[in-house]
């Protein structure tokens, strides 16, 4: 067993701070959001293709933030944060996805709306 540390600044979560990682995370997120903004301005692709492109760019931005800003990995210091995040993401997606799906199905069966008044959603 290694010697105990008494200085909080020697803690692994303090030592993991890294200027290049934070600057890389900042630049990566900025570039990805800028790209998503340009795709939005052009608005040429059909809705499904557009939504998938934007979602892909957002996912890349979130992954870069998790890896570079949060520093999540499978090291001893970070593994339980990584595991809990991996277990929570499906809950987040299911919470939103199932609610949208449920109300979308309900609206289709109970709300008599002309097709022209419907706003496109992620399920259309």
């Amino acid at each position: 067993m290694s010697a105990p540390h008494t200085n909080p600044l020697d803690h692994p979560e303090v030592r993991m701070a890294s200027a290049w990682r934070y600057i890389s995370g900042f630049i990566a997120s900025m570039v990805l959001m800028q790209a998503a903004f340009i795709v939005t301005l052009r608005q040429h692709p059909p809705y499904e293709q557009y939504a998938l492109t934007i979602a892909g760019l957002a996912l890349a931005s979130l992954v870069s933030q998790a890896a570079l800003f949060f520093g999540l990995d499978i090291s001893r210091a970070q593994i339980w944060k990584s595991v809990s995040l991996v277990l929570t993401v499906p809950l987040f997606v299911l919470s939103v996805g199932l609610t949208v799906w449920m109300f979308q199905s309900l609206a289709a069966r109970t709300m008599l709306m002309p097709a022209t008044t419907m706003q496109p959603t992620l399920l259309q």
Partner: peptide
């Protein structure tokens, strides 16, 4: 914070459901 994220999930779900002309 992960539980806080689920609060945002609930608000996102409400937004998604109400994001139409009706």
């Amino acid at each position: 914070m992960l539980s806080d994220a689920l609060i945002f999930a609930a608000v996102f779900a409400a937004y998604a459901v109400l994001n139409n002309r009706m």
